[in-house]
Nucleic acid binder design. Structure first.
Lengths: 118, 118
DNA sequence: TACATGATTCGATAATACTTGAATCATGGA
DNA sequence: TCCATGATTCAAGTATTATCGAATCATGTA
């Protein structure tokens, strides 16, 4: 991943509303949830929500699939994966990801609880 | 870490120039490098650079310490650590941090090469 | 076709962020 | 003190982003 691309992803998540949307979609799982449900939960106007959904889609963090009248949005774990990989490997060179702290001490735990699939 | 705070950190890194600055400081190590050196390497006007350095400082991603006429800036690994922890645990629930991909498959490698300290 | 509903796009406005020359501050040396 | 240098702050302009009502598009149903 290039710096520019990483910056785009970071900027996309660097907004309270969009970060909230993304977290909601992660919680929602692979099936995703539709736009109006997101709007209800986060108290966002439809137009504003669409704006942010479009932004997140454009950078590849989420995907929307129409199902009848609804469009189900879901998180793209792969993109997030790439971003975290970039941050830990290319950006931080492992400095921010040492065992006792961020992401590696609970690998087993997460691996277990992620039985739901990668 | 709260969502708002995480969004602030992400937004801070969500700009090509600031991400480049941060990466440069990570490379530079704990001693850090001074502002004009950063400006030279990245081809940034002094005022612009100060603006971005102030932003990164404000959110806690870097720290500046004056040493004679120079101010040495260095990366705060701890803050980055917190951010990555937030992204993997609170935001992604481990989904984006599974063994085969982002950050955990090379723990040993990084731990080894990080002899320089956590 | 007519209508209801989910969602997006348009358009206008407001707010925020970015850039940079010039001025200023801080430090050390002559 | 005066000057040079590293760095920041100020001020003004430019550009980008965010918000949201209204209009439009898309789909399913009667």
């Amino acid at each position: 991943m290039e710096t520019l691309n990483a910056a785009e992803l970071l900027a996309a998540l660097g907004h309270e509303s969009r970060l909230a949307i993304f977290r909601l979609l992660v919680e929602a799982g692979p099936e995703g949830i539709n736009a109006s449900a997101i709007g209800e939960q986060l108290g966002m106007a439809p137009a504003t929500l669409s704006f942010h959904l479009a932004h997140l889609s454009r950078v590849g963090l989420i995907t929307g699939e129409r199902e009848s009248r609804f469009i189900h949005y879901s998180a793209n774990y792969g993109t997030m994966d790439d971003l975290i990989a970039f941050l830990t490997h290319n950006c931080c060179q492992g400095n921010a990801c040492l065992p006792q702290t961020a992401c590696c001490d609970t690998t087993e735990k997460r691996r277990a609880k992620a039985g739901k699939k990668a």
